[in-house]
Simulated scan of single mutants.
Amino acid sequence: MRKIILYTILLAIVSCGKTAEMEEEKVEGSSVYAFSFVGTSYEIVKENKSWTDAVSFAVARGGYLSEINSEEEQNAVFLELTTKAGIVLNETNNEFGYAAVWLGGNDLAEEGSWVWNGDNEETGVAFWIGGVDGSAVNGLYNNWGNEPDNNGDQDALCIGLEATPINSAGKWTDLDGNKNQLHFVIEYD
């Protein structure tokens, strides 16, 4: 009897400490994996789209491409992407052959002026200025690897799911938002 009570208490403690709840469904022909972290809801859409098409999909669902604002959020989203969402890496490869997923940052308005603009409106919150040797705007969180490098007019932000010759898995990189077709993360307020 004591073992059952202790097990029940332990199970309740583990359940209370859970930071993410998830489910998977089909939406408009896309496989969508949903989870939450610290009161924010997210969806990982496992369908390849250009950055602007991913934004349109997110906005049509009432969200926006995800904005990562802390190391804790970065770690939670990356964990979901790599261990829980069931992503097959070679199904979301960028033009260089590495798995990546779109986030809501871009420097479309001005090269090197990175903003969180996951709904592709006219304005966004600036978080990075410059290239690989740039700096955070107002101390805002960033997780660039050896990027952004604007190699070939790369104006859209993604998170790498695997290591590349210049970055470790989980680091951010800039890609051509039209040339690349990737899975993406939607965030809801």
Score class of each variant (00 low, 15 high):
129 I>K: 10
119 D>L: 07
120 N>Y: 15
132 V>A: 15
148 P>D: 05
162 E>H: 05
102 W>F: 10
124 G>V: 02
162 E>I: 03
104 G>Q: 06
150 N>S: 14
128 W>L: 06
114 W>Q: 03
157 L>R: 06
123 T>S: 13
135 S>F: 10
105 G>R: 01
122 E>A: 15
157 L>P: 01
124 G>P: 03
142 N>L: 03
137 V>F: 08
136 A>M: 12
132 V>K: 13
114 W>V: 07
131 G>N: 15
100 A>H: 03
119 D>Y: 06
136 A>L: 09
160 G>L: 08
109 A>Y: 13
154 Q>Y: 06
167 N>S: 14
126 A>S: 15
141 Y>E: 10
117 N>W: 02
128 W>C: 06
157 L>C: 09
98 Y>D: 01
142 N>R: 10
120 N>S: 13
133 D>L: 14
163 A>I: 00
138 N>A: 15
113 S>W: 04
165 P>D: 13
141 Y>F: 09
118 G>S: 14
154 Q>E: 15
144 W>H: 06
163 A>M: 04
145 G>L: 06
118 G>L: 02
127 F>C: 04
161 L>A: 02
165 P>Y: 06
111 E>R: 09
97 G>L: 03
138 N>L: 15
130 G>M: 05
150 N>A: 11
150 N>Y: 11
134 G>H: 10
137 V>C: 04
142 N>Q: 15
